[in-house]
């Protein structure tokens, strides 16, 4: 079942096409990434889905509700981490949570208190609950903003750049928390990011968008294979000579052999790395080669992504 479904979703700002006929589907319980450079249309897409701005064309449903007709219902079932933390700095962490809990309809006092406590403890902010948000670090604000988005236990969560502007350590903390959270609370998550690490670590599927258009959709592994081709074999030898290279080239499925003499390293392009690797190793050994290491090299998602965005 789809939690989010868009059909030709489009948004123009004057003559500028921010989102261009975007169609995708996010299944229930899935973590779906919208990956793209700044200005790709990620935030505009989330804002349309969260009923903050209207679409110029196309349609979309969130949790079964049409974003055009049932905006209040959509807002009710969605939790959103906006591009900025959007926290009230003169209020304490608890007061911020309390306001949004009530705004999203948590009227039972005990239930509300328990939920706020549970989330603040999960995000390690409970000890600082009575401190004003103005005194928080950027990472703490981001954690609080995610906690706020979860306060009403929304089945669908939109996270817009959850690690943007954070140092690597804080980014890792946030990523780990989202990962634990998605496993624990089973939300459907739509994650906007330009950080490949976020997409790679957190998403079941990723859609790369550029200039408002969908470029490709798939799991991080699929994207790597589709964009940057098949993995290659890296072999490091103690001794490298022409006889060994010729022996490798004689193996039927070997397409190309790149030689790095200085490091005694070979990068071998094959049809099917898994099945051909033993034969390649055997040919090296028969040719008198002494193998130090054999690795399968996959192009990183970053390489794949950069290649794709550059092509676009």
């Amino acid at each position: 079942m789809s939690s989010v479904e868009t059909n030709g979703l489009t948004r123009r700002f004057g003559s500028f096409m921010a989102v261009d006929h975007l169609s995708f589907e996010v299944k229930e319980g899935e973590v779906f990434g919208l990956l793209g450079p700044n200005g790709a249309g990620k935030t505009t897409t989330v804002r349309m889905l969260a009923c903050l701005i209207s679409s110029s064309e196309g349609s979309a449903s969130v949790g079964g509700y049409d974003i055009g007709r049932d905006s209040l219902k959509v807002r009710q079932i969605v939790g959103i981490l906006t591009e900025n933390p959007s926290l009230y700095e003169r209020l304490t962490a608890y007061e911020n949570m309390d306001f949004f809990a009530e705004a999203y309809g948590l009227s039972d006092v005990q239930e509300k208190r328990n939920r706020i406590r549970e989330l603040l403890e999960f995000f390690e902010l409970y000890e600082r609950r009575n401190n004003k948000v103005a005194t928080f670090s950027k990472g703490m604000k981001q954690k609080l903003a995610i906690a706020r988005a979860l306060v009403h236990q929304p089945p669908i969560l939109f996270l817009d750049e959850p690690t943007a502007g954070l140092d690597p350590e804080s980014s890792k903390v946030i990523r780990d928390l989202i990962e634990r959270l998605s496993q624990r609370e089973k939300h459907t998550i739509l994650l906007c990011t330009h950080h490949l690490e976020d997409a790679e670590k957190l998403c079941n599927r990723v859609m790369i968008i550029n200039r408002g258009k969908s470029v490709i959709v798939g799991s991080p592994d699929e994207l790597r294979d589709k964009i940057a081709g098949q993995p290659v074999l890296q072999v490091i030898l103690k001794n490298l000579n022409q006889k060994i290279i010729e022996a490798i080239k004689d193996v039927k499925q070997v397409k190309e052999v790149d030689v790095d003499n200085s490091a005694s390293r070979l990068i071998i392009t094959l049809d099917d790395v898994k099945s051909v690797t033993p034969e390649v190793v055997r040919s090296i050994v028969y040719a008198g080669g002494m193998v130090l290491s054999v690795n399968t090299l996959r192009p990183s998602l970053e390489e794949a992504y950069l290649k794709l965005v550059k092509e676009e």
Binding site: L52, L72, T82, N84, S86, A103, Y104
Partner: peptide, 14 residues
């Protein structure tokens, strides 16, 4: 100005 408006507008308050 304080960039708090987006989260407020995203709530189901009419």
């Amino acid at each position: 100005e304080r960039k708090t408006i987006e989260a407020l507008l995203a709530t189901p308050i009419s």
